[in-house]
Computed example of a mutant assay.
Amino acid sequence: MNNLINVLFFNDKNYNAKIQLFFAISFPFFTLLALGIDSVYFKEHFFEGRDITNVLSVLYFSFFFWFSDSYLRKLMFVMVFLSYLGEFIFCTSLEMYNYRTELIPIYVPFGHAIVFASGYVFAHTQLAVKYDNFFRKCFAADFYYIVFSCRILSERYFFAYFWDIFLFAFKKKKMAKLVLFHSPLCYIY
């Protein structure tokens, strides 16, 4: 059974690094489009666009998944469920934040997986490897700016402490570069 799942879903058969990078680069534009369609403005002037955003996000995720290698596919797959679990705990159960509607939009966990996959792809490009020290310094400053802004300006203390713990854990695993590549993507998403 495990082999069947690996053969069907977690293989490198359609892996294409250029298309994968295209999806990672296109992510900011897709986010603007998707969140624009699901915005209050769009709803007030046109119609409720959440269903369209849900479909677009699942399709974007699916194509990104299709052209990824087996390792990233597994990470994306797990990230959807971890994201939904996190949304359920912090949004629904603890009521730390909420969306326009009572339910968590379907596009949110898929969007989080796309953010993660995009950061992963960027962190493994030749440019990232070549200028590793430069990117670490820039993104570390960027990362701490985000954390500082959330902690001081918006009083979102939980977010800041969570990211501090998250970065510390990844530093121990020598994966800090992967986390730091996600900091600019946090602005977008």
Rank of each mutant, 00 (worst) to 15 (best):
Y161L: 09
A24H: 08
S70L: 03
E155A: 09
E87R: 10
I104H: 03
L167D: 11
L85V: 10
A141R: 06
F22L: 14
Y157D: 14
L180T: 03
Y107G: 06
F81C: 04
F30M: 09
L75C: 13
F90H: 08
S57F: 00
S118T: 15
F30D: 00
F90V: 11
F64M: 13
Y157Q: 07
F30G: 09
V108A: 10
F23Q: 02
F166A: 11
L180M: 03
R136A: 12
K177W: 00
P105T: 05
R156G: 08
Y99M: 03
W163D: 01
F170A: 04
F9S: 06
W163M: 14
A141E: 04
Y71K: 12
Y120L: 05
K172S: 08
A24F: 01
F9C: 06
F158M: 05
R151D: 05
C150S: 13
Y15N: 15
A17Q: 14
C150I: 00
L153H: 03
F10T: 07
R151S: 06
S154M: 06
F22Q: 10
V147K: 07
F181E: 02
K18T: 13
L59M: 06
I188C: 11
F67S: 07
L153M: 08
P105V: 00
V121F: 05
L56P: 01
F170H: 12
V78R: 02
L153R: 04
L4M: 09
F67H: 01
M76C: 09
K177G: 10
S68F: 04
F116A: 14
A140F: 12
F162W: 07
L21Y: 07
F168P: 03
L56S: 01
A141L: 11
G36I: 00
I5E: 10
F110E: 07
K174Q: 09
P105I: 02
R73E: 07
C186G: 09
I165W: 12
Y71T: 12
M76G: 00
M96Y: 15
D69T: 09
E95H: 15
V147T: 10
S83G: 14
D142F: 13
L127Q: 01
I188T: 01
